[in-house]
Amino acid sequence: MKRLIDATTNEVLLNRVEVADTFWQRFKGLQFRSPLPTDTGLLITPCSSLHTCFMRFLIDVVMLDQELCVVGIRKQVRPWNAIFCVPQTTSVIEITSASKSWTLGQKLKIVSDIEERPFKK
Rank of each mutant, 00 (worst) to 15 (best):
residue 2 K to H: 15
residue 2 K to Y: 11
residue 3 R to W: 03
residue 4 L to K: 03
residue 4 L to N: 10
residue 4 L to V: 04
residue 5 I to G: 15
residue 6 D to C: 09
residue 6 D to S: 13
residue 7 A to I: 00
residue 7 A to G: 03
residue 7 A to L: 13
residue 8 T to M: 13
residue 8 T to I: 08
residue 8 T to P: 01
residue 9 T to Q: 05
residue 9 T to N: 01
residue 9 T to G: 09
residue 10 N to R: 13
residue 10 N to Y: 10
residue 13 L to A: 00
residue 17 V to N: 13
residue 21 D to V: 14
residue 22 T to E: 00
residue 22 T to D: 07
residue 22 T to L: 14
residue 24 W to S: 05
residue 24 W to G: 10
residue 25 Q to H: 03
residue 26 R to T: 08
residue 27 F to R: 10
residue 29 G to F: 08
residue 29 G to N: 06
residue 30 L to P: 04
residue 30 L to I: 02
residue 31 Q to M: 14
residue 31 Q to L: 11
residue 31 Q to P: 10
residue 33 R to N: 08
residue 35 P to T: 01
residue 37 P to C: 10
residue 38 T to Y: 09
residue 41 G to A: 06
residue 42 L to I: 04
residue 43 L to N: 10
residue 45 T to S: 14
residue 45 T to M: 09
residue 46 P to S: 12
residue 46 P to T: 05
residue 47 C to K: 04
residue 48 S to D: 01
residue 50 L to F: 00
residue 51 H to D: 06
residue 52 T to E: 13
residue 52 T to P: 05
residue 53 C to Q: 02
residue 53 C to S: 01
residue 54 F to R: 03
residue 55 M to R: 04
residue 55 M to V: 00
residue 56 R to L: 05
residue 56 R to W: 08
residue 57 F to Q: 00
residue 57 F to C: 05
residue 57 F to W: 02
residue 61 V to W: 11
residue 62 V to T: 00
residue 67 E to S: 05
residue 67 E to R: 07
residue 68 L to Y: 05
residue 69 C to M: 14
residue 70 V to E: 12
residue 71 V to S: 03
residue 73 I to Q: 05
residue 76 Q to W: 07
residue 77 V to P: 09
residue 78 R to F: 09
residue 81 N to L: 06
residue 83 I to H: 10
residue 83 I to W: 10
residue 84 F to N: 08
residue 86 V to I: 15
residue 89 T to P: 12
residue 90 T to P: 03
residue 92 V to S: 13
residue 94 E to N: 10
residue 94 E to Y: 02
residue 96 T to I: 03
residue 98 A to R: 12
residue 99 S to R: 10
residue 100 K to P: 04
residue 101 S to H: 07
residue 101 S to F: 05
residue 106 Q to C: 03
residue 106 Q to K: 09
residue 107 K to W: 01
residue 107 K to A: 13
residue 107 K to M: 10
residue 108 L to R: 11
residue 111 V to D: 04
residue 113 D to H: 03
residue 116 E to W: 03
residue 119 F to W: 04
residue 120 K to S: 14
